[in-house]
Design a protein around this nucleic acid. Structure first.
Lengths: 105, 105
DNA sequence: CACTCATACCTCGGGAATCAAGGCATGAAC
DNA sequence: GTTCATGCCTTGATTCCCGAGGTATGAGTG
C-alpha cells in the first residue's frame, strides 16, 4: 500500500500536523500508521513539493509542524484517485472475477 | 501492491507455469508483471508452502514448471480476499468518502 | 541449414516503502 | 515533581518490486 495519496486526501480538508494526520487516518480507515512510516513519508512529500510545512506555536507554547497541500499535491492526488480506481478494478478482476478466461497467446 | 494473492487466485483455476501466469495476469488486469518479480515471488510462495511445483515436459520436449495451489495456499487466498475488501473500503473511505467536502475557492 | 523470434526458466543489484524500536522534548494533570 | 499524553524525529532490518541482464529450446522462415 502506498500511503502517500491518503495523506494528500487528508490534507485536502486543510493543513494538519503529523500527529493528527495519523489520528485521522487511523480513525477513518483502521489502517496502521506507524510514526516510523509517517514522518519520513511527510519529508519525502515535502521534498517532492507535494506539501509545504510550517511551524506553528499553539497558545500553550507547544510547537507543531503543519503540512499543507501544494498545487502540485492536489494534482498528484487527482491522479492517484484515478489510479486507485483502476487498480481496484484490476485486482478485483483477478481476485473475484475468475470465471472469465482471457485468451493468453 | 502485494502480488502474491493474485498469483494464488490465478492458480485457483488449475496448475499453471510461470510464463503463462504472467500472461494471464497481464491480460486480466493490465498490471505490470516483470519476470524479475514473478519468479522470485513463486519461489517465496513455494518456500512458504502456498504452492507446490512440478516439472512437466510437453510433447515437443519443452520443460515447464507447473505450480499448483496447496491447501495452505487456498486458505491464505481466502484470507487475502477478505483483507483486500477491507483495505479497499478503508482506502476509499479516505480517498473519496471524506466527511468534509473540499470546495474550490 | 542458418537465422530469428517467441517461449521459458533464472539471478543479481538497487531502490523504495514500511515497521519496530528506540530517542528527545514539552505541557497538563495530579 | 512525577506521570501522562502529546509531538517531533532517526536508525536498522526487512520486504517487495523492478530493470537488466543470462541461458536454453522449439518453431517458423528463407
Amino acid at each position: 500500500m502506498n500511503l502517500q495519496p491518503l495523506v494528500l486526501a487528508i490534507l485536502e480538508g486543510g493543513p494538519l500536523y503529523g500527529y493528527l494526520i495519523a489520528r485521522r487516518a487511523k480513525a477513518k480507515s483502521g489502517l496502521r500508521w506507524e510514526e516510523g512510516t509517517l514522518y519520513p513519508l511527510l519529508h519525502r512529500m515535502e521534498r517532492g513539493k507535494l506539501v509545504s510545512s510550517e511551524w506553528r506555536t499553539a497558545s500553550g507554547g507547544r510547537r507543531r509542524k503543519y503540512y499543507a497541500l501544494t498545487r502540485r499535491g492536489r494534482s498528484v492526488l487527482a491522479t492517484a484517485r484515478a489510479d486507485w480506481k483502476e487498480q481496484v478494478q484490476a485486482v478485483s478482476n483477478i481476485l473475484f472475477g475468475g470465471r472469465r478466461h482471457a485468451v493468453a497467446r
